[in-house]
Design a binder for these strands. Structure first.
Lengths: 163, 163
DNA sequence: ATAGTAACTATGATAATCATAGTAACAAGA
DNA sequence: TCTTGTTACTATGATTATCATAGTTACTAT
């Protein structure tokens, strides 16, 4: 893209986060990190993004303090990427995207009756549907409270990608 | 950009919405629509985006069923853009972005003590902070339940943009 | 007749992304 | 030792999206 107006100093909170989150690659990488994929190659394979793009975006995420680069072995040097507290706090955004998609983005029956990704509340075991408050116990749902289970179709797709 | 893998048929719900929402211009336009800016020129002025980009993105949003184009007068032909039910349901995503920014994206004191955008619960009048459930009455917060008031700095910035 | 407004479209320069290939640093097996 | 494999990237050239600026269409108002 050409030079564009930088929004990181706007006073609008949506504008500020749009500078980071208004990017397809960033969203896909964050999704993978939330699912526990920490290694460069795993993220590149599952997202389908090229290595330069993964590299560039991870650098940006590290610079923003959303992700940290961590050496998990010395010889040979190997690194993994982890969400920081600031990064984990983006869960609400990704979860809201998932909820919207479950409600609007699938044709009837496309996912085989259930959601593409089923979430259950760890504390009480209830299926939370697309809610932000547990429909069973009424608690607010945060990162870590939920357990996600991909549908059979999604599992097959991920396996085909090698992720 | 070059041709890229289309994610609109992935089974991953985040991937599906990332195809639409992983775009800075789309997020900014949606933000403006949520704030009641319905006219082309008002959106272009406030977002700072060029008219071709606004035009292209509005067309895409209309094609996706998120926005509808509505003629508000015949002579001369004038149109405005409105969020559909599907579009209004994206509120949770934008609100989650706002909440994250309020918590992480501002230097201490940058917004003058309060949030960049203050939201109060219409039903009970309470300041909701960055919560998804009203801290006063415990109700889940949806689109329409909240009343937003920009900070002085944000108001000044919007006025300077002509939006 | 001239200026103004709203909602765009056209043009050329610039910059981001992609596919593909290559590099660096090592480990393991033949 | 030589070859192959793994992880984490970087380099290159073609393609395509975005930007700034200017122009267009269809009117109304003075």
């Amino acid at each position: 893209m050409p030079k564009r107006a930088d929004l990181s100093d706007t006073y609008c909170p949506v504008g500020r986060s749009a500078e980071l989150l208004g990017d397809r690659a960033v969203l896909l990488i964050l999704r993978d990190l939330f699912f526990g994929r920490r290694r460069f190659e795993a993220i590149a394979a599952n997202t389908g993004l090229g290595p330069q793009l993964v590299s560039a975006r991870l650098k940006r995420l590290v610079a923003e303090g959303v992700v940290e680069r961590h050496a998990y072995q010395e010889r040979p040097p190997r690194h993994e990427y982890r969400l920081t507290a600031k990064g984990k706090d983006l869960f609400d955004v990704l979860y809201a995207m998932r909820n919207w998609s479950e409600r609007w983005a699938y044709a009837p029956g496309e996912t085989g009756g259930g959601p593409a990704m089923r979430y259950t509340h760890r504390a009480c075991g209830a299926d939370v549907g697309t809610a932000t408050i547990c429909p069973n116990c009424g608690e607010a749902l945060r990162y870590g409270d939920l357990k996600g289970e991909p549908s059979a179709a999604l599992k097959a797709e991920q396996a085909a990608r090698g992720g």
